[in-house]
Design a protein around this nucleic acid. Structure first.
Length: 748
RNA sequence: GCCGGAGUGGCGGAAUGGUAGACGCGCACGACUCAAAAUCGUGUUCCGAAAGGGGUGGAGGUUCGAGUCCUCUCUCCGGCACCA
C-alpha cells in the first residue's frame, strides 16, 4: 500500500480546491451565513514565521466545521500593508515601497497557501491598493463632514538628531528607536479624530458583545469613565477656579487647591472653600495632570494619599473629621474620560494621503468624491524632511494645486494617515462586490453594497492578538459605530464574538525575531513534516489562548497520529449494515455486540464538536487520538466509524482526510460532507466501572450495569474483599453514592 | 500602586466538587532486524523490595470527598500607571 506522502497529497489538493473554488462564499446561497475573521497580516520583509498561522488555523477549523454544518461561510484574508518597517526599508535601500510590498505579500501568500487554510482568496484585499484606500479616504471625508475630524496643535515626538517626527511605536523608553537620541516634544498641527465623542457608546456597546472579560476590562480601563462633580472655588472675588473630583462629598476636608504645572495663573492666590467658607491656598504641582478633568483638584489630605503626602511636605493643614456633603451640594455632576482624541496624522510617506487642500481663501477644503483616490505620488527620497514634514511636502508639483471650491491656488495636505486607518474598516471591504469596490467613490455606490453588509455583518467570530485590544479593536469599533450612526452599516457593533490566541515563542521562551535569529520558518516544517502535521501540532501544543514555546521534538507526535489514521485503511473491512460475518444484524444489534465502541464513537463526536466551539483544539485532538488508537486496537474497522473519524479530523488535517476520502471512492469533497452528530442516548455505556472509596481513599472497584441502583451498588461494594479489609471492625457511619461512578464509605 | 491571568510528573499539558497526571513528547525494557532506523508491545508522579504512604507554589478552612470552593500568603506573566 502507498505510504503517506504529505507533500504530494497537499500540492494536489490545494490545486484541486483552488480549481473547484469550494471555499468561495456563495452570494446566492439561502443557507445561514457565517463570517469568520482573523486579523489580516502586515506583510513584513521577514516572511511568515510559525506563530503567524496559529490564529489562521484555529479559525480555519471553525470555518471548515461551519461549512460541514451547512453554513455559507465567509473566511477572507488580505494585507494591512501600509506601515513603518516597509517605509524604513525603502529609506535604507531606496527601493519603492510599492514594489517591496508586492514582494512581501507574494511571499506571505505562497506561505499561507501552502498550509491549506480555507480562505476565500477571491476576496483578497490590500490597504495600499488605491482601489482600497480611496474608500479609506472617503470615510475620512465622512468624519470631516460630520465634524469628527479636526485639526489641533499637538505635541509630537521629535528626534533632534534624525530631524524626524516619530510615531509612538518608534519611541522606546523616551528615546529614538534608531539612534538612541532623547526624543523631545514638538508642537505641530495634527489631524484628530473625535473618538471621545463615542466614549459612552464604545463603553455601553461592550455589554452587548461576546468578548473575553479581560478584553472588556482593558477597553473599559482605557476609556476610563469616571463620574464626579465640577466645583468652582472663588479666587479674589473676580475669578473662579474649577476643579474636578469624584468625591465632592469630601469638600469639607479640602484645605488647599492644586493646579497642574502649566496652569499657573492662580498659583499662590487664595480661594474660598464654598463648604467651610474658609480661605484656602492654591498650589501648583506636577502630580496634577493638565489634560485630565479641569487640570485642577481640591486637596483633601484625609481622603487621598497623594494629597496627604503633598500636605505634609508643604505644611498644609490637614482636617481629619469633617462633615460629608451631598454629591451636588456645591458643584455640578459631570462625567470625565481618560480616553483622548485620536492623533490621526503622520509625517510619513507610506500611508493614505489625507484628501484635503488648504486654500488661503476657503480654508481647509475636502476633496470632492470624484477626485478620489488621491493617489500617493512617486517620490525619489522617502526620508522625512528637515522640518518634520512628510516627504510628500517636497514634491511641489503635487503639493501645489487648485482649490476645489474657488479654483484659486491651494496646497495639498502632506500628512498621511496612521496605519490603523485601513484596518479600521477592512471587515467591510471584504463584503464589497468587485464592481462596487473598483467603481466610483460615492454614496450611491456604497449604498449598493449595503445589502451585502446587511447580509454578512456583524462578524460572527473575530480572533486576534491581545496587543490590539485598545488600539485596533477600539478604533475599528469606533469607525463602525460612526458609519452605523450615519446609516452606512447595519450593525452598531462590528464583531459579535472576539477571541485571542497566544503567541508562539522560540525554544527558550523568547519572542521570535529576525534580530535574535530564532525565527522558525513554516516552509521548513511543511517540507519535512507536511502542512497537516504542522497544523495539528500548532493546535495540539497547548491551550490556544496561551503563549507557548515551540518544541521541534514534539512535532513527531501529530505526524505519528496521521500515519496511524492513514494506515487504518488497511483494516477497513465491513460496514455495519453488511451481513458478511454477523448474519442479518441491524445496527442496533451490532451496538450490542460492540457497546464500548459505540459509546466511544458518540463521546468522540460530542467532545470534538464542543471543543472546537470553545477553542479547546488541544483536547479535541487528544480525543481524536484516543478514538484512532481504539480503532487501531480492533481487528476490523467499520467503514462508518472510520469515515466519522475522517470527518471529525477533516477541519484539522484537510489534505490527508480529503485524500483518504477520495480513495474510499467518494467523488465529492469531504469538506462538504455533513458534520457528524451524536446520539445522546449512547454517551454512557451499559457497563461501567464503579470506584469504591473508604473515607475518601480509593480502595477498590467493580464493574456493573450503569442502571444499578444505590442499594445494590453499596451492597456489592461493601462485600468486596479489599473493602472488607479496610472497613475491618469499624462501623460504617454513612455511605455516599454517585450514580454509576463511585461509592464512598465513611467509618468512625 | 491598581486591574487581569497563571503556578499540576523529566517536558507540553488533561481533569461538570467524585480514581490527579488523559493525550502527546522523552525515557526504559521487550519484539522485529546481521545491525540500525521506522514500527509494534509493556512500563514510566515521588518514596518504598513490598505492604503502604506522600503529592497539584505555601498555610489554614468548608465537605463523606478539594487541583477545582472560601480566607490569608508567595512567585511568575500581561495590561494600565500621579486619571483626583
Amino acid at each position: 500500500m502507498k505510504e503517506y506522502n504529505p507533500k504530494e497529497i497537499e500540492d494536489k489538493w490545494q490545486k484541486e480546491w483552488e480549481k473547484s473554488g469550494i471555499y468561495k462564499i456563495d452570494d446566492n446561497s439561502d443557507n445561514p451565513k457565517y463570517y469568520s475573521l482573523i486579523e489580516f497580516p502586515y506583510p513584513s520583509g521577514d516572511g511568515l514565521h510559525v506563530g503567524h498561522p496559529r490564529p489562521y488555523i484555529g479559525l480555519d477549523i471553525v470555518s471548515r466545521k461551519r461549512r460541514m454544518q451547512g453554513y455559507n461561510v465567509l473566511y477572507p484574508i488580505g494585507w494591512d500593508a501600509f506601515g513603518l518597517p516597509t517605509e524604513n526599508y525603502a529609506i535604507k535601500t531606496g527601493k519603492n515601497p510599492r514594489k517591496v510590498t508586492k514582494e512581501n505579500t507574494d511571499t506571505f501568500k505562497r506561505q499561507i497557501q501552502s498550509l491549506g487554510i480555507s480562505f476565500d482568496w477571491s476576496r483578497e484585499i490590500n490597504t495600499t491598493d488605491p482601489k482600497y484606500y480611496k474608500w479609506t479616504q472617503w470615510i475620512f471625508l465622512k468624519f470631516l463632514e460630520h465634524g469628527l475630524a479636526y485639526k489641533a496643535k499637538m505635541p509630537i515626538n521629535w528626534c533632534p538628531k534624525d530631524k524626524i517626527g516619530l510615531a509612538n511605536e518608534e519611541v522606546v523608553d523616551g528615546k529614538c528607536e534608531r539612534c538612541g537620541m532623547e526624543v523631545v516634544q514638538k508642537e505641530k498641527e495634527q489631524w484628530m479624530l473625535a473618538i471621545t465623542k463615542y466614549a459612552d457608546k464604545l463603553l455601553s456597546g461592550l455589554d452587548t458583545v461576546d468578548y473575553p472579560e479581560r478584553v472588556k476590562i482593558q477597553q473599559r480601563n482605557w476609556i476610563g469613565k469616571s463620574e464626579g462633580a465640577e466645583i468652582s472655588f472663588e479666587v479674589d472675588k473676580s475669578e473662579s477656579l474649577k476643579v474636578f473630583t469624584t468625591r465632592p462629598d469630601t469638600i469639607f476636608g479640602a484645605t488647599f487647591l492644586v493646579v497642574a504645572g502649566k496652569v499657573d495663573r492662580f498659583t499662590g492666590k487664595y480661594a474660598i472653600n464654598p463648604a467651610t467658607e474658609e480661605k484656602i491656598p492654591v498650589w501648583e504641582a506636577e502630580y496634577v495632570l493638565a489634560d485630565y478633568g479641569t487640570g485642577a483638584i481640591m486637596g483633601v489630605p484625609a481622603d487621598d494619599e497623594r494629597d496627604m503626602e503633598f500636605a505634609k511636605k508643604n505644611n498644609l493643614p490637614i482636617v481629619t473629621e469633617y462633615k460629608k456633603a451631598g454629591f451636588e451640594d456645591f458643584g455640578t455632576k459631570v462625567v470625565k474620560y481618560k480616553l483622548r482624541d485620536w492623533v490621526f496624522s503622520r509625517q510619513r510617506y507610506w500611508g493614505e494621503p489625507i484628501p484635503v487642500v488648504h486654500c488661503d481663501k476657503c480654508g481647509t477644503v475636502p476633496l470632492p468624491e470624484s477626485e478620489l483616490p488621491l493617489l500617493l505620488p512617486e517620490v525619489k527620497n522617502y526620508q522625512p524632511t528637515d522640518t518634520g514634514e512628510s516627504p510628500l511636502a517636497t514634491i511641489e508639483e503635487w503639493v501645489n494645486t487648485t482649490c476645489p471650491t474657488c479654483g484659486g491656488m491651494a496646497k495639498r495636505e502632506t500628512d498621511t494617515m496612521p496605519n490603523w486607518a485601513g484596518s479600521s474598516w477592512y471587515f467591510l471591504a471584504y463584503l464589497f462586490n468587485k464592481e462596487g469596490f473598483e467603481g466610483p467613490v460615492s454614496i450611491e455606490n456604497w449604498k449598493l453594497q449595503i445589502k451585502n453588509f446587511r447580509h454578512f455583518m456583524p462578524v460572527d467570530w473575530y480572533n486576534g492578538g491581545m496587543e490590539h485590544t485598545v488600539l485596533h479593536l477600539l478604533y475599528s469599533r469606533f469607525w463602525n459605530k460612526f458609519l452605523f450612526d450615519i446609516g452606512l452599516v447595519p450593525a452598531s457593533e462590528p464583531y459579535k464574538k472576539r477571541t485571542s490566541h497566544g503567541i508562539i515563542l522560540a525554544e527558550g521562551g523568547e519572542k521570535m525575531s529576525k534580530s535574535k535569529g530564532n525565527v522558525i520558518n513554516p516552509d521548513s516544517i511543511v517540507e519535512r513534516f507536511g502542512a497537516d502535521t504542522l497544523r495539528l501540532y500548532e493546535m495540539f501544543m497547548g491551550p490556544f489562548e496561551q503563549a507557548i514555546e515551540w518544541n521541534e521534538s514534539s512535532l513527531i507526535g501529530p505526524r505519528r497520529f496521521l500515519e496511524r489514521v492513514w494506515k487504518l485503511k488497511e483494516k477497513l473491512a465491513l460496514t455495519k449494515s453488511s451481513d458478511v460475518s454477523f448474519g442479518k444484524h441491524d445496527q442496533t444489534s451490532l451496538d450490542k455486540v460492540f457497546p464500548f465502541a459505540t459509546t466511544l464513537l458518540n463521546q468522540t463526536i460530542k467532545k470534538v464538536s464542543e471543543d472546537i466551539e470553545t477553542l479547546g483544539f488541544n483536547t479535541a485532538i487528544s480525543t481524536l487520538m484516543i478514538f484512532a488508537n481504539d480503532l487501531d486496537r480492533r481487528e476490523k474497522v467499520f467503514k462508518e466509524d472510520y469515515e466519522t473519524l475522517l470527518k471529525l479530523l477533516a477541519p484539522f488535517a484537510p489534505h490527508m482526510t480529503e485524500e483518504i476520502w477520495s480513495g474510499l471512492g467518494h467523488t465529492s469533497s469531504i469538506h462538504r460532507e455533513q458534520w457528524p452528530e451524536f446520539d445522546e442516548t449512547k454517551l454512557v455505556s451499559d457497563e461501567v466501572i464503579i470506584v469504591v472509596q473508604v473515607n475518601g481513599k480509593v480502595r477498590g472497584q467493580f464493574s456493573a450495569l450503569s442502571s444499578i441502583n444505590e442499594k445494590d451498588a453499596v451492597g456489592v461494594a461493601k462485600n468486596l474483599l479489599e473493602i472488607q479489609k479496610w472497613i475491618g471492625d469499624k462501623t460504617v457511619q454513612k455511605s455516599v453514592y454517585v450514580p454509576a461512578k463511585l461509592v464512598n464509605f465513611v467509618t468512625d
